[in-house]
Computed example of a mutant assay.
Amino acid sequence: MSLYRTELRRLGKRRLTRWATLLGLLVLGAVLVGVFFTNQKIDAEQQAIAKSRAEQQHQDQVREAERERAACVQAKASGQDQPEGRYPTDCAMIEAPPRESVETQWFLPSTFDFRLSFEEMVITFTSIVALIGFVVGASFVGAEWNSGGMMNLLLWRPRRLTVLLTKLAALLTGLVAVSVAALVVWTAGFWAVATLRGSTAKMTSGAWQSFALTELRGLALIVVAATLGFALASLGRHTAMALGGAIGLVVVGQFGLGIIMQMAGARFLEAWLLPTYVLAWMQKKVTLEDWESCNATYYGECKPDTLDVTWGHASILLVFGLVTILGAALVTMRRRDIA
């Protein structure tokens, strides 16, 4: 009997795998339904209403500016004491903002523009499925160690690394198959949302290619998350090792490191945090800003220093973490006694 097919069958029959998959699908479905009911298609009537409300707000601002200018003139004519900075030296400087400052789109209802909003939905999908993949991956091998099933399996197939890598291959095969199917449905679902409750305009071949690459990066991140959960649980020979490691990374490695770097006055604090690199991997680039440094422009505008974190930086971190943890799991599997 094929070890690979046996592991695939074992993965599919595990209750945690089934319940976690069902829970993930329910969460994804809830997100899809929520987006559908919180958006609507904008027609000419809504455009006219929004334009009217924008015009009304601008007129309110004009009247308020006129009242303030009149009050300024009266205060200066009467010589009344005013709080410092209450009025400018020249009352004519009090003017209403231009009409363009009040945008019509502020008064439009929420609508789902597929080209502008779908990338965020891909990131949401990746986050949910990666979390499920991490838990399922950790449980898949951790339960084997905890129940003694790994020892029995090695009596049948004594090649340790082959057994561990075959189990990992079965896990990733099942995870990728389910993820790809769910991602196709996810894309079709949001295309329907955009068709019924938004807009599918400007969807060129280039836009589809960009979304496809984003989805591929999301699948890669899901695979990395599941592999890390699997490797951590194999290192500790228990599911709790992976879950505890993840909690320790979040609490100690992220919050603790963030506090330390903030106390040290480090610039670009987000550059020390893992979520920044995950987001950079998905979006290709994240620009961090240091508002402590204010570089005034010729017109007096404050321009902070910036730092770009790209998907290249993120890939180095992900590959390093994956190779280190999975390599440690393989070395430990080969050297430690099975008992």
Results as ranks from 00 to 15, higher is better:
residue 178 V to K: 13
residue 176 V to Q: 03
residue 192 A to V: 14
residue 216 L to T: 04
residue 164 L to E: 00
residue 228 L to D: 00
residue 174 G to A: 08
residue 177 A to S: 06
residue 207 A to C: 00
residue 177 A to Q: 03
residue 189 G to C: 07
residue 206 G to D: 14
residue 166 T to V: 12
residue 159 R to V: 11
residue 216 L to N: 00
residue 220 A to R: 06
residue 162 T to S: 08
residue 192 A to T: 08
residue 158 P to W: 08
residue 212 A to G: 09
residue 155 L to F: 12
residue 225 A to M: 09
residue 197 R to C: 08
residue 221 L to W: 10
residue 179 S to D: 08
residue 210 S to L: 02
residue 176 V to G: 05
residue 199 S to P: 00
residue 175 L to R: 05
residue 224 V to I: 15
residue 223 V to L: 15
residue 173 T to Q: 09
residue 220 A to K: 02
residue 199 S to D: 07
residue 221 L to C: 09
residue 224 V to W: 10
residue 206 G to Q: 12
residue 183 L to P: 03
residue 171 L to T: 07
residue 181 A to F: 13
residue 195 T to L: 00
residue 190 F to P: 07
residue 190 F to E: 03
residue 224 V to Y: 12
residue 196 L to A: 14
residue 204 T to V: 02
residue 172 L to A: 05
residue 163 V to S: 11
residue 153 L to Q: 10
residue 173 T to R: 03
residue 188 A to N: 08
residue 211 F to I: 02
residue 161 L to Y: 01
residue 151 M to F: 04
residue 175 L to V: 09
residue 165 L to G: 00
residue 210 S to I: 03
residue 228 L to E: 03
residue 191 W to E: 09
residue 188 A to H: 06
residue 203 M to L: 15
residue 159 R to K: 15
residue 204 T to A: 03
residue 157 R to Q: 15
residue 208 W to F: 13
residue 158 P to R: 01
residue 209 Q to T: 15
residue 199 S to E: 07
residue 215 E to F: 10
residue 220 A to H: 04
residue 198 G to T: 12
residue 156 W to K: 14
residue 174 G to R: 05
residue 158 P to V: 03
residue 192 A to C: 08
residue 201 A to R: 12
residue 154 L to V: 12
residue 158 P to L: 05
residue 174 G to T: 01
residue 198 G to P: 10
residue 163 V to A: 15
residue 191 W to M: 11
residue 175 L to S: 06
residue 162 T to L: 05
residue 196 L to D: 12
residue 177 A to C: 03
residue 207 A to L: 10
residue 208 W to V: 12
residue 170 A to R: 02
residue 190 F to I: 11
residue 161 L to H: 06
residue 186 W to T: 03
residue 174 G to Y: 07
residue 188 A to Y: 06
residue 186 W to C: 04
residue 153 L to P: 01
residue 180 V to S: 06
residue 214 T to G: 14
residue 184 V to W: 11
residue 183 L to Q: 09
residue 152 N to W: 14
residue 224 V to K: 10
residue 228 L to W: 04
residue 206 G to N: 07
residue 153 L to I: 02
residue 200 T to F: 01
residue 152 N to C: 13
residue 205 S to I: 14
residue 207 A to Q: 06
residue 201 A to G: 10
residue 219 L to V: 00
residue 221 L to G: 04
residue 222 I to P: 06
residue 173 T to N: 12
residue 207 A to Y: 14
residue 215 E to D: 09
residue 222 I to R: 00
residue 223 V to E: 01
residue 180 V to L: 13
residue 197 R to L: 02
residue 172 L to E: 00
residue 167 K to W: 00
residue 153 L to M: 15
residue 202 K to L: 02
residue 176 V to M: 01
residue 186 W to S: 06
residue 191 W to C: 10
residue 166 T to C: 11
residue 220 A to D: 10
